[in-house]
Design a protein around this nucleic acid. Structure first.
Lengths: 334, 334
DNA sequence: TTGATATGCTAAAACGTTTTAGCCTTACCG
DNA sequence: CGGTAAGGCTAAAACGTTTTAGCATATCAA
């Protein structure tokens, strides 16, 4: 059951392959093909259900209409929601997405970039990690559109779209302080990526600006790939052994682990113990009491990414890298 | 900055393209290429960083090493978690995933299948919807490996991997009844897919087997694509106006809406009001009290899908369609 | 009448691989 | 010593498109 080729159509219509190609690609008028022929060929295509082989097309034209998406983990709701929005918007413009998760591994990330390169994707959307600067630079040097998001790599001059992590973090801490909190903990991860560092910096700066001394023992850095049970143990230790009246969790999955701890040790979130999570999650709205969270503007981020990509794809000349920082929203609950 | 081709390598090594190709594909020994030449060419490839153009390769060989994944919505945690597992397992075997969400639209699903077809994906993993039976049959007729999952299409003779929705649902209701519940509601969706129907059937059968009369007014079918606010309004009406002592939610997002309603009307889940959700969700573990849920065996489902695909890919002869039903697990909490 | 222009179409090269068929040596066997 | 086999390599076709260059014929202006 071989599928039809343009040649089959040409034979059936008794015209040349070239003519069929022109018609398929809407260049018929340009190339002055007669209406009669256009109609005949279109009819045959319609009836036979012929679809051009995209692979052959890609080989010839050099573009694939595929956008490569490299993220940390598609099962993380932040990424899956962004992926969905990106997919949607890309799809409407005729692009498909091929994605892969890096799991924060430099090797895997590099491999993925190579994979995508050999697949000739038209553009790259990457939530990067430290250590792949060179590879990204090579993509840029080769003239590929590359958009970083969520986390930036300062060493690389690529376009970047992300939320204002520093200010969101700062605001959250300011909010705690305004409520009279003094001993404010930060639970974060040990991966050295820009957006995590910014959240940390915002935390520190807010304390400092309010004349509260930074206490390193109130900052817990959780190892990225460890079992949740261990995370829970570590958070429990922090919360039980330290005098703490508020916590900012730097990621939503850490916040979820944290809430489990609070449940275990029978501590309730409320007036005398504040919690804010970075990145909202359905569980927070539902939790009793409801948990405050920082919402990243997913829709805007996705839209901006696609806009940048399309503008880069539509001009052959290299556009200067753009940095778009979009404010996050602190949603206070209960 | 044109990228290297096999020809460039051949020229550099002063051998023919054919020889390079044999070496790249590990057929050198077979084709009796001398060790000296192998070494020389490999060295040049290594140094130059040459990567074969996958598109040209695909065009020639007819396979792409890409698996197409068609699901309802990547941002739904059930699908994103499955996607992650599938991606992982596929990746380890040298396959990449290209995905797209159907949003339960027949037209979009058909379009996606065509898209994937013209991209010559090597296999299809589809969480199907009613109305695309013919398209799937065509894929099968053309000899493509196709695995349906989550929901089956009885009209089509494709392999299927899914959880035992009927029994899980039956068990849940039985559990309610064992606890003395009599007025058991079901909140489900109006999409006519097999796994939803099975959950409904399980509900009915369990009632029947226990001599409880089926009351249609206790079954709420929520329209698929509607706003959450409307869903909440409908669930609220059900719970307020009917004498109900237990609810089974047929999807996790409906359960989440339902829990929001309970919060609004100040009804607490507990001994005199039971709740079970189909598909677990992080929010349930965290909810106070914790919410019971039916867990689908994601890991096993993903593993089985990949196994079936690989076995189909490795034999050229068509294998008979297999149906694998994996038991779900009812996790009772609090 | 002549050259130019428009109209309608096509042959063939090119994209970068894989693979078939086969060429030339040298080695070996009887 | 002649024939066959093995070893080491390669030319060229093929995959299915797009696109460049160009061939006829008809029309038209001068």
């Amino acid at each position: 059951m071989k599928s039809l080729s343009i040649k089959d159509i040409a034979v059936k219509a008794n015209v040349s392959i070239t003519t069929v190609s022109f018609i398929i690609n809407g260049k018929a008028k340009d190339k002055s093909i007669s209406d009669a022929v256009i109609e005949k060929v279109e009819k045959i295509i319609e009836e036979s259900g012929y679809k051009p082989n995209q692979i052959a097309r890609s080989l010839r034209t050099g573009n694939s209409n595929i956008i490569g998406l490299i993220i940390e983990d598609i099962s993380n709701s932040f990424f899956s929601r962004i992926a969905r929005l990106i997919e949607d918007k890309a799809y409407k413009r005729g692009y498909k997405i091929i994605y892969s998760s890096t799991e924060n591994s430099v090797d895997k990330a590099k491999e993925l970039i190579n994979m995508f390169k050999s697949r000739k994707v038209d553009a790259y959307i990457i939530s990067p990690i430290k250590g792949i600067e060179e590879d990204i630079q090579m993509l840029l040097d080769d003239g590929n559109p590359v958009i970083l998001f969520d986390r930036n790599l300062s060493a690389v001059n690529a376009s970047y779209v992300g939320a204002d992590h520093f200010n969101a973090s700062y605001q959250s801490i300011q909010n705690f302080i305004d409520q009279g909190k003094k001993n404010i903990a930060l639970v974060t991860t040990d991966i050295n990526v820009e957006q995590i560092v910014e959240r940390y910096d915002g935390y520190k700066k807010a304390l400092e600006d309010n004349g509260i001394k930074y206490d390193e023992s109130l900052v817990l850095k959780i190892h990225f790939n460890q079992e949740e049970s261990e995370t829970i143990a570590q958070i429990k230790e922090l919360l039980q052994n330290k005098q703490i009246d508020a916590v900012l969790f730097a990621t939503n999955y850490l916040a979820i682990s944290g809430l489990k701890v609070l449940k275990q040790i029978n501590k309730t979130v409320g007036a005398d113990f504040g919690v804010i999570a970075y990145d909202d999650h359905e569980a927070f709205e539902l939790h009793t009491p409801r948990i405050s969270a920082i919402q990243q503007p997913l829709e805007e981020i996705a839209e901006t990414i696609i806009k940048l990509i399309l503008s880069q794809l539509s001009t052959k000349s290299k556009l200067p890298a753009e940095e778009v920082i979009i404010p996050s929203r602190l949603v206070l609950r209960d």
